[in-house]
């Protein structure tokens, strides 16, 4: 799974907020391009800490993180330009229109105006949001805001797309549509996707899974391999066994 084809490579990453408790302990895994990888773990497993390290909201203390083969500590600008991210919390400016939000993001990536407009059109069309481009974000419902956030994360054509529990607060049909859409994106655009979740039903049989528990990556690989190694017929039961928690 490692090497040039990796959208994300995490090697021996540990992190502690205090001297006594490690939030992450020697975590290593890869997200290949064109694959959908679910980062599965109960609350407090260390998912958000890991995401903060990958996005450089937290400083790395040891181990290494590479995005599309660029080390985030040695070449932060280069690495971050290949990362698309959808945070768990909504991060759109409610008082600005959809287009104004997207233009702002494009500018943060140094994208020239004409190219930005073209990409904004493309992505909004892909998400069926083109006709709502001039509406203030405040007027959009949760599902539409999420679509805009995913469209925004794709504007600069990243190699790696990181989504931190993007379905939180959405109704089931909207959630299913977004899961489906991101799977399609991953295949068609050859993007490595890391989808952090604690919801088993968002994961499909053909996906890769990394199970994070108490700061450690206790299992990783394609879903069938995990089922085979744990001896359980469903991922929910395997997760339950691995973490000692009831699968959500």
């Amino acid at each position: 799974m490692a090497g040039e084809n990796s959208a994300l490579e995490i090697s021996s990453v540990s992190f502690a907020y205090t001297k006594t408790a490690k939030a992450l302990d020697g975590v290593s895994f890869n997200v290949p391009r064109g694959r959908f990888t679910a980062l599965l773990g109960p609350n407090g497993a260390g998912k958000s800490t890991l995401i903060s390290l990958v996005t450089r909201l937290l400083g790395q203390t040891n181990g290494s993180i590479c995005i599309d083969s660029r080390n985030i500590e040695k070449s932060p600008g280069d690495a971050m330009s290949r990362l698309g991210i959808v945070f768990q919390q909504p991060t759109l400016d409610l008082d600005l229109s959809v287009t104004q939000n997207l233009r702002y993001f494009a500018a943060l990536h140094g994208m020239p105006g004409q190219l930005a407009e073209q990409r904004i059109d493309e992505e909004l069309r892909r998400f069926n949001m083109l006709e709502r481009r001039n509406e203030k974000v405040r007027r959009l419902n949760g599902g539409h805001r999420r679509r805009v956030e995913i469209a925004r994360a794709l504007l600069h054509q990243p190699a790696f797309l990181l989504l931190d529990e993007p379905s939180v607060g959405l109704d089931i049909p909207t959630r299913e549509k977004i899961v489906e859409h991101v799977h399609t994106l991953s295949r068609e655009k050859n993007i490595g996707v890391l989808w952090a979740t604690h919801l088993i039903d968002e994961i499909r049989a053909e996906d890769d899974v990394v199970v994070l528990h108490q700061g450690k990556a206790i299992e990783k690989g394609p879903v069938p391999d995990i089922l085979a190694s744990t001896g359980f017929p469903t991922l929910g039961e395997a997760f339950n066994k691995l973490t000692g928690e009831a699968a959500p």
Partner: peptide, 18 residues
Amino acid sequence: EMGSMRVLMTSPMPRWFL
């Protein structure tokens, strides 16, 4: 707190410049 600062801070531009 609302999260939108994260969008700025995850830009590829150097943080001092942002």
